[in-house]
Amino acid sequence: MTSLPENLETIAVDRPVEHVARISLVARAMTPAFFDELPRAVAALDDDPGTRAVVVTGADGRFSYGLDLMAAAGSLGPVLGDPTAANREAFLRHLRGLQASITAVADCRTPVVAAVQGWCVGGGVDLITAADIRVASADAVFSVREVRMAMVADLGSLQRLVGIVGDGHLRELALTGDDVDAAEAQRIGLVNRVYATPDELAGAAVELASRIAANSPLVTRGVKDVLDAERGPRVEAGLRYVAAWNAAFLPSADLQEAFTAFAEKRKPQFG
């Protein structure tokens, strides 16, 4: 197996069966360290000839609570306090870097299965939409939560979900920020299958990855390449657009109110 980056703090990597690697999200939320470690781990596995399928899963009863809001507030601080062109351009570069971290999963030549238990919020949904296949346990809950934080989701959900759940379901998810349980997620096509317990999910995800890994690696990579020929350029164009939109309009009184309300544990009041 190709050596992995050392001293990973936010993810863990193991090999449950031959030819299958598993990435577990150790951190509850997506910190700056997570966005650095994820693409490095994915690249190492993608370069490993012994890895023919990858499972991405959570830990401690949840998948991911999404972006670390305190860290996000730090990155937004300069542009909120002084919304000059230079600060907005710096934020645009920062946002494009976060997008690239999630896109590393979508660009992985090796097939990726996302196994979701518990909460999968915001950036967590961005991540699973970058996977090839999604499965869940019955306790899974999904939310494109950004709209409730006065943000336009900008790490890939708006671009990739349209090819997964369809335009109508995507708009409902993105415009309401509602929580969606596993049964509803399966009904709209967000996940392929739902398993009764997290243990059943874990076994089923590895078994599914093993069935993929039993096929020709050249051909499974070819299938991904052909399927992504249309989606890839469309998603990239959408990511560039939303990054520019958020760099221009994300700093707002509504965003400040959303972060204040979050810190005060109350419902925001938008103007």
Rank of each mutant, 00 (worst) to 15 (best):
71 A>H: 01
190 L>M: 15
89 E>R: 08
271 G>N: 11
32 P>W: 01
62 R>G: 10
176 T>E: 05
178 D>A: 14
143 S>M: 11
123 G>L: 00
244 A>C: 05
64 S>N: 02
245 W>L: 12
196 A>L: 02
247 A>V: 01
264 E>G: 05
173 L>S: 02
98 L>D: 04
26 V>K: 15
227 L>A: 12
55 V>W: 02
48 D>W: 01
16 P>C: 02
139 D>A: 03
262 F>H: 12
237 A>R: 15
167 D>L: 14
13 V>S: 07
146 E>Q: 09
25 L>T: 02
140 A>Q: 00
251 P>L: 03
211 R>S: 14
4 L>D: 14
213 A>G: 13
73 A>Y: 05
265 K>P: 04
253 A>T: 13
179 D>W: 10
29 A>W: 13
38 L>W: 05
158 L>N: 06
154 D>I: 00
57 T>W: 02
43 A>H: 06
48 D>L: 03
181 D>T: 06
259 F>T: 11
189 G>W: 15
146 E>F: 06
30 M>D: 05
79 V>W: 10
71 A>Q: 00
42 V>P: 10
83 P>L: 05
124 G>A: 05
166 G>H: 13
236 E>P: 05
108 C>V: 06
76 L>I: 03
128 I>P: 08
113 V>A: 11
116 V>I: 12
149 M>W: 07
236 E>A: 09
156 G>N: 00
17 V>P: 07
52 R>Y: 12
262 F>C: 06
257 E>S: 10
154 D>H: 01
222 G>D: 11
243 A>D: 08
114 A>D: 09
43 A>Q: 09
210 S>R: 14
248 A>K: 11
148 R>S: 12
74 G>D: 02
261 A>M: 03
101 S>W: 01
263 A>G: 04
112 V>C: 06
204 A>F: 04
229 A>W: 01
124 G>Q: 10
173 L>I: 07
16 P>A: 08
243 A>F: 00
220 T>S: 15
215 N>M: 15
8 L>W: 09
126 D>A: 07
171 R>Q: 08
244 A>V: 06
256 Q>D: 09
267 K>W: 06
146 E>G: 05
23 I>Y: 12
41 A>H: 04
26 V>A: 15
70 M>I: 06
13 V>T: 14
171 R>K: 02
218 L>F: 12
144 V>M: 10
148 R>F: 07
242 V>F: 01
123 G>H: 01
195 Y>Q: 11
162 V>S: 08
55 V>H: 10
30 M>H: 02
29 A>P: 08
50 G>D: 11
